[in-house]
Design a protein around this nucleic acid. Structure first.
Ligand SMILES: [Mn+2]
Ligand SMILES: [Mn+2]
Ligand SMILES: [Zn+2]
Ligand SMILES: [Zn+2]
Lengths: 144, 144
DNA sequence: AGATCGGATTAGACAGAGTCCAAAATTCAA
DNA sequence: TTGAATTTTGGACTCTGTCTAATCCGATCT
């Protein structure tokens, strides 16, 4: 997966710190850990998965900080929320426009690149409204 | 609690009961009330809105029954879930294929008819998977 | 270095949505 | 009418996420 925010930088603490500074975020120890977890690979973790991943080595980050930080990253455009499951929000470190497969049986989320996908025939927006985003979710389940 | 003298058009109650039977659902009083609330107009209520609406005249239906019934209706294909808000599920009594505008500032949900909307260029599904549904959510907010 | 001070972190209380359970109520076929 | 099967129910419980006030930094100044 292409990470718009990572360019070709290695996932070092220093490169992550620079990315945070570039987005106007003071790079604290906890924020760097959370960013490393978010960008280390292509996944769509929940807050709880991030909390677990960040504390694998030492318990050094609290639940409150994970939620605080995810909200901050969201405000600053570093991550986006994925609303596909009734029970929890998933976070997507790929902020470029794209869509998703959602396997309803396993919960697995897979990116669909936006290039090549085209939506035709949408009606005009209600008066005075502006588009904040168009999400396509293809819900799948194991075939016969 | 069942009240024998509820003033409601017998045709409407009876037609709802028949619809439930046609879907293999035993039409109890609570289920009929919930179905009436769901189908009385075009809206996308949450479980809590349904609970409130059903109990406007008398408190005759419990929270547990609303959730039980919504799950039953979902299984039987009478309603569909709408996952657009991180905090609650909305229910859609329109089960034909269609899409939605979601006004992020007011929470208002508006139907987009599927006729005329076309999605091109979706990649093939992961091996062994089958489509359970394709949802387009156009998130909007008040314009400039 | 030591003191300062504002932002960041934290534990744990709290809230809202939804689930579960065992007891009570009801349905409906016999 | 009867009673077994189904449905309903209050309330405890779980889970995700929020809030708050105390504490902890860590960058800057002397
Ligand atoms: Mn939930
Ligand atoms: Mn929530
Ligand atoms: Zn994604
Ligand atoms: Zn709808």
């Amino acid at each position: 997966m292409y990470h718009a925010n990572m360019a070709l930088e290695p996932n070092t603490r220093e490169s992550v710190a620079q990315m945070l500074r570039a987005h106007g975020i003071t790079p604290t120890h906890q924020r760097i850990e959370i960013a490393l977890v978010l960008f280390e690979r292509c996944w769509h973790p929940s807050a709880d998965q991030i909390l677990t991943a960040v504390n694998v080595r030492y318990a050094e980050t609290s639940k409150a900080t994970v939620y605080n930080t995810l909200k901050l990253f969201l405000d600053k455009g570093l991550v986006r929320e994925l609303i596909v499951d009734p029970n929890k929000v998933f976070y997507d470190s790929n902020t470029s426009a794209h869509h998703h497969f959602y396997d309803m049986s396993s919960g697995e989320i897979t990116d669909i690149p936006a290039e090549g996908v085209r939506i035709d025939g949408l009606p005009p927006l209600p008066a005075g409204m502006v588009t904040a985003g168009v999400d396509i979710i293809v819900r799948t389940r194991p075939g016969i």
